[in-house]
Amino acid sequence: MTQKRLPSFSLSGYGANWSANRRIAIVTCAVAVLLAIAAIVSLLTGRGNSHQAPDTAAPAPADSPSPTEAGPPPSSGSGAVPKPPQIAEPVAYAKAAAQMLWSYDTRNASRDQQLAGMRAWMTTETTYADWASVSGQVPDPVLWSRMADQDQHATAGVTEGHYPSAFKAALADDPSAITQAYIYVVTVNGNQQIAWRKGGGGAEERAVTLAVQCRPNHDCTLAAIAPSVTQ
Rank of each mutant, 00 (worst) to 15 (best):
V138F: 15
P65G: 12
K95R: 04
P139L: 05
P175N: 06
A97C: 14
F167Y: 14
T159I: 07
T124N: 06
V158A: 13
Y93E: 02
N108C: 02
A170I: 08
K168P: 10
D173T: 03
G117T: 04
K83C: 06
T155M: 15
D105H: 01
S165R: 10
Q113T: 01
P175T: 01
R119P: 01
W131P: 03
L143Y: 01
S78Q: 10
A98C: 13
S165Y: 05
A97G: 09
P84G: 04
A120V: 09
A109D: 11
A88G: 12
A88S: 12
L171T: 09
V134W: 08
T127S: 08
Y93Q: 03
V138N: 09
H162R: 01
V91Y: 12
P73D: 11
D174G: 08
S66E: 06
E125C: 11
A156V: 14
I87E: 05
P72C: 02
T159E: 15
A148S: 02
S176N: 10
S78E: 06
V91N: 13
A109K: 02
A116S: 03
A156F: 05
M118W: 11
D151V: 01
K168Q: 08
P139A: 10
P73Q: 00
L143F: 00
V142K: 15
A98S: 15
M118P: 03
R119C: 02
T155V: 13
D112C: 06
P72E: 08
L101R: 13
Q150E: 00
K95P: 13
Q137R: 15
S76N: 13
L115K: 10
A148C: 00
G161P: 04
S176I: 11
G71S: 10
Y104V: 03
P90S: 11
P164Q: 00
E69N: 13
T124A: 08
S64G: 13
Y128L: 11
A120W: 01
F167L: 05
R107D: 08
G161H: 10
N108Y: 04
L171Y: 14
V81R: 04
G71V: 02
R107P: 03
A166L: 11
S110P: 07
A169G: 09
T127R: 05
P85M: 00
P65Q: 07
A98E: 10
S135N: 14
A170G: 12
M118G: 01
S133K: 06
L101E: 09
P74S: 11
A70F: 15
P65N: 07
W144M: 00
R146I: 00
G136T: 12
K95G: 10
G77D: 08
P82M: 14
V81D: 00
S135K: 12
Q113H: 00
